[in-house]
Design a protein around this nucleic acid. Structure first.
Lengths: 238, 238
DNA sequence: CAATATCTGTCACTTAGTGACACTGTCACT
DNA sequence: AGTGACAGTGTCACTAAGTGACAGATATTG
């Protein structure tokens, strides 16, 4: 997940997708910095353009609106949760999986990703008072909710659009949102990061377990094909 | 809750509050109608102004943005849930309370309120595809979440900003949101209203109960002062 | 190098939203 | 009745967000 990988993933024309994401992220970084420093209303599209070294017109080609400039940074700040959820094997408990994934993450994270994460936390904080940004944050949470619906559906052996699944996913995602906001606020208010991160996995898992009435969080029995006792389903990459 | 009450509730100057809410609701009605008929992007501020018979400038005096014109109608569509939650006595179960309140509501609702409710459902539906409107809907859900936090806090004897309470409130509010979306979509797709409303109270209550790990939904023992066995705390009016 | 397709800048333009000021009706006090 | 204060609205000029259209730059392929 380092940010200097360059794939030869383009078949024709421009380096679409790969490059586009980079540009969007670059813009998002500057926008987030300015939003945090001056507020959203106090920041103009021209300022963002100047900060990132592009013309204003190009900004609007990459983002539909000023506030949406914050989306990539916010989305990236929940990306690791998303990835972790996606790679959650049936036979493990949520706290186990979170703990090992977090350990793996700490060793792999790059300085620039760390800076991005900081900006993301700031945007989430800002979203509490700036309605314009709240949309970006809630969109990211929506993303989590959908991913969660898929994960829960496979765990319980039901369809993702089943009403019961949607209820569980919504409740669990809401719990995760509250925890994210709580942890983020704590970090910004100067709480020691280690104090927050240390034993929180059990807390997170319990929150999810509670929100889903105990249906989600524990290992799941695999009845049909007990012939795959290793890692398992980490095959998708957004 | 009839819409023709006129109170002498102003001490000086204009009839602030009372009148302002009426005007905002009027604007919201027309805006919602236009949004539904032509889409949000296809509706201009000038059109809204003309439809409601005011100048465009006055529209912007009542609403910060075009999309926020939908807020009052959306908010009103969850207002009864809010009121029901507020008046939920400690000693009753959620399904009991919802059932009796719903019965009371059916007899008191006015035709224009029914029309407003229809518009509200349409806006919620529209919010699924129009990001601009999603904000309004999520704001209303936020409102529910806060109210719920207060209600749950008193039920469990804790502070509303307690993390556990916030988790419960968020999860329960998310469940209510999903149910609202589900029921709304059903209504618009032509499902018989009675089929949906008939036995849904137990379902709603169970959803809340599940989302809060069973902590919210059942009657609560009143230890301290058992000297008030009647309705109770329905004193606030927004 | 030529051909082609994508990306970007510039400029004119529409639309959302604000500021400033004038006008009108209502209330309060005389 | 007269007058002043004030809230609500309309009008007009203005800023800022966002789009369309076209031209120039850049990169990829043959």
């Amino acid at each position: 997940m380092a940010d200097d990988v360059v794939s030869t993933e383009r078949s024709r024309g421009g380096m679409s997708e790969q490059r586009r994401r980079r540009v969007r992220l670059e813009i998002s970084r500057e926008a987030a910095r300015l939003f945090w420093a001056q507020g959203v209303d106090g920041t103009s599209g021209d300022q963002i353009a100047e900060a990132v070294g592009l013309s204003t017109r190009t900004i609007w080609r990459h983002f539909r609106s000023k506030e949406s400039c914050a989306e990539p940074i916010v989305a990236q700040s929940v990306e690791w949760e998303l990835a972790t959820l996606r790679s959650w094997p049936l036979h493990r408990s949520l706290e186990e999986h979170f703990a090992t994934e977090a350990k793996r993450l700490v060793s792999e994270i790059s300085p620039s990703e760390q800076a991005d994460a900081g900006l993301g936390v700031k945007m989430i904080r800002l979203a509490e008072t700036e309605p314009a940004l709240r949309t970006a944050w809630l969109m990211a949470c929506d993303q989590v909710e959908h991913e969660l619906a898929a994960v829960i559906a496979t765990r319980l052996g039901l369809k993702p659009d089943d009403l019961q699944i949607r209820l569980h996913a919504a409740a669990a995602a809401a719990a995760l949102r509250v925890i994210n906001e709580y942890v983020g606020a704590g970090l910004l208010d100067g709480t020691d990061p280690r104090k927050l991160g240390d034993e929180s996995f059990a807390f997170i898992a319990d929150a999810v377990r509670t929100a889903t009435g105990g249906a989600v969080g524990d290992p799941v029995q695999v009845d049909e094909a007990p012939a795959a006792p290793d890692e398992g389903a980490a095959d998708r990459q957004e």
